[in-house]
């Protein structure tokens, strides 16, 4: 009854709410943990101590280099057709504006296609994208590519409707990318409300002028670490089940949900297993990634360093899409491996979360999954998750200890059973 013991300990027993309380301690002490920031390095040092004090094994920090970008002061004021200050959040890696800002007329479009159709109008303008939210993966392209597509046409800045299914005047930040050969222009997100307002104004033929000021600046890459802790396997110690979340966050809110929740239920999984005196046959390895929000930068360097042992990785797991009440496990792997994971998830019947979905993935574990290692992630309440994602609302207030208990129990059962099975998961 190992599975029941883990579930009871996590959901009903002494470990109840531990991951929530541990997370609160860290985020209240450190705050948001932007890549390259002192906060992030402080959080990593605290976690190093936490994991050692928790009695986990082989606790160490693996040095990597991650991007260092700082937001600076930023503001946007609509000057015409009326004066209105707008909430914005500059996008990661964006350049700043001159000190006096950029004041220009706005061209509002609702898609890249419309921008192409109206290309001659874009020169010298601030392009505002009022793209409707479809889902995160397709809509995020506007945040990532909005500046480049506008700059190609001579735009002087871009403002992009926040990528979120729900807004209470909440701007959402995130990474964006420039492209070689295309001029770099400042880019920021605006709220859904302001994007729709300007779209409405434009449809009535109003002339819209915005003054945009951004103090964003990029610096040379910073030193950071992936944080590692283990329960070393009793029989096949060289083989690994990797359980992970990322410690870095954006510089908004507290980074509690993204990805404090994922990092701390992953730690909790090892703590639960250790509490019960269990030691799986394979090594259970916790990795708390750094530089995830910049595109899995820390994880890529881990992959480069460890890929020589790829055949020893039975399963890679990342929780990075919320730790509310999960509805199941997402899994990527061969049909046989999927059938095995369906058997494993039956063990979660006591908490009635037994489903296996497709698309197990995570920015930090996708390097392994693309090379054939089975991968898993939690399927969670994505509407709620993306409503708070990368916004000032990403705080402990959105987290729920009971939901974290359940998520941790699922994470612990899956990682332990796969780590303790006599054989590794098959690959196609």
């Amino acid at each position: 009854d190992v599975a029941k013991a883990i579930i009871n300990h996590a959901v009903y027993g002494k470990a109840q709410n531990r991951s929530y309380e541990r997370l609160a301690l860290l985020v209240y002490a450190v705050g948001p943990r932007l890549s390259g920031s002192k906060n992030l390095e402080k959080a990593i040092q605290i976690m190093y101590q936490n994991l050692r004090e928790d009695g986990l094994e082989n606790v160490h920090l693996e040095p990597v280099k991650i991007p260092h970008w700082e937001r600076g002061e930023e503001s946007a004021v609509m000057l015409e057709p009326r004066i209105q200050k707008m909430a914005i959040l500059g996008l990661g890696s964006s350049i700043g504006t001159p000190p006096e800002g950029i004041t220009a007329e706005v061209l509002v479009v609702t898609s890249f296609d419309e921008l192409q159709r109206r290309a001659p109008e874009a020169r010298g303008k601030i392009v505002v994208y009022n793209q409707p939210y479809v889902n995160y993966s397709s809509t995020v392209l506007y945040r990532v590519r909005g500046a480049v597509e506008a700059a190609r046409l001579g735009a002087v800045a871009s403002l992009i409707r926040s990528v979120t299914p729900f807004s209470i005047y909440s701007p959402h930040t995130g990474i964006q990318e420039y492209q070689d050969g295309v001029p770099k222009i400042p880019t920021a997100c605006i709220t859904v409300e302001d994007a729709e307002m300007m779209s409405g104004m434009a449809s009535y033929g109003a002339r819209i002028i915005i003054q945009l000021k951004m103090g964003a600046k990029s610096y040379p890459d910073a030193d950071s670490f992936n944080t590692v802790a283990e329960i070393i396997g009793s029989k096949y110690p060289e083989q690994v089940v990797l359980v992970s979340g990322h410690l870095d966050s954006w510089d908004v809110g507290q980074g509690a949900m993204d990805d404090g929740g994922g990092a701390f239920i992953s730690w909790e999984a090892l703590s639960l297993i250790k509490d019960l005196g269990l030691r799986p046959k394979r090594t259970l390895r916790l990795v708390l990634w750094t530089g995830e929000e910049q595109g899995g930068v820390g994880a890529f360097q881990y992959y480069q360093l460890h890929k020589a042992n790829i055949s020893n990785y039975s399963l890679v797991m990342e929780s990075d899409s919320g730790t509310f009440l999960p509805s199941g496990l997402q899994f990527t792997g061969s049909d046989k491996a999927r059938a095995i994971m369906e058997e494993v998830m039956r063990l979660l019947q006591p908490i009635n979360i037994t489903q296996v979905f497709r698309n197990g993935e995570g920015t930090d574990i996708n390097y392994w999954i693309q090379d054939g290692v089975p991968g898993a992630s939690l399927l969670d309440d994505l509407y709620k998750y993306f409503s708070f994602h990368h916004s000032h609302g990403d705080t402990m207030t959105v987290m729920d200890p009971k939901e974290m208990n359940v998520a941790a129990a699922l994470w612990a059962v899956v990682s332990y059973v796969v780590a303790d099975m006599e054989e590794m998961l098959p690959r196609s």
Binding site: N312, K336, I340, E343, E422, E423
Partner: peptide, 24 residues
Amino acid sequence: KAIYRNDVSQSAFQEIKEEIASYG
């Protein structure tokens, strides 16, 4: 030495099923 397999026979799968059930 890695011992993952590229596939699992039905009988092996049955064994794995029973092994997993033992955790419950």
